[in-house]
C-alpha cells in the first residue's frame, strides 16, 4: 500500500467567478512545499484548475480532494451539479455546453475535460443526471518504463 502523506479537501462554490482558480493555486502551493517536480505540479495544476472551472461554470457546489502518497497524486472532484448525460460526447475536444458569457471569458471551447484527461495517468468520470458528477484523476510521481 502506498503511504498517504497528505489529504486535503476544498469546497468549491458554483458560479463563484470571484474566487475561481484559488483552490488550484492552493493545491500547487501545497505541492511546491512538498518539493514535487515542477512538471508534475503543472499537470496537477491543470487538472485542478479545469475541474474547478467546470464546477464554477456548471455545478452548484463541489468538493475537491487532493491526496498525495509516496508514489502518486490524486485529485478527486465530486459535485452536486446537473450531471453529464453523454460522457463520451462531453469528452470530445470542441464539444461544449457553455453560455455566450463563458465563451467571452475564454472558456467553453470544449478543451477542459480533454485537458484533464491528457494530464492524468489515470482518469475516470462518473455522472448521474440530476445528481452530480465525480471526477477522479491520478498523476504518478514515479514513471514506469
Amino acid at each position: 500500500m502506498p503511504e498517504e502523506l497528505l489529504r486535503k479537501t476544498f469546497e468549491i462554490q458554483g458560479w463563484d467567478f470571484e474566487n475561481a482558480g484559488e483552490r488550484s493555486a492552493e493545491v500547487t502551493t501545497i505541492l511546491k512545499d512538498l518539493d514535487v517536480d515542477p512538471n508534475i505540479i503543472l499537470r496537477v495544476g491543470v487538472v485542478a484548475f479545469e475541474a474547478e472551472m467546470n464546477v464554477v461554470m456548471y455545478a452548484g457546489r463541489a468538493t475537491l480532494t487532493l491526496v498525495v502518497t509516496d508514489d502518486e497524486i490524486v485529485v478527486e472532484v465530486a459535485d452536486e451539479g446537473p450531471g453529464i448525460a453523454d460522457i463520451e460526447l462531453a469528452m470530445q475536444p470542441g464539444y461544449s455546453t457553455a453560455s455566450d458569457e463563458m465563451r467571452e471569458m475564454g472558456f467553453g471551447y470544449g478543451l477542459g475535460l480533454p485537458n484533464i484527461k491528457k494530464n492524468s495517468d489515470v482518469f475516470s468520470l462518473q455522472s448521474e443526471v440530476g445528481r452530480g458528477t465525480r471526477l477522479h484523476s491520478i498523476i504518478r510521481l514515479i514513471s514506469y518504463g
Binding site: 475561481a20 479545469e50 472551472m53 471569458m105 478543451l111 485537458n115
Partner: peptide, 24 residues
Amino acid sequence: DMVSDLIASARTNSVVVTLQTHKS
C-alpha cells in the same frame, strides 16, 4: 484568448498576450 489553451501551453517564464482581463 482561450483560457484552457493558455493553461495547457503557455509554459514557465512566458509572456502571455491575450484579450482576457478576468481573475481566472
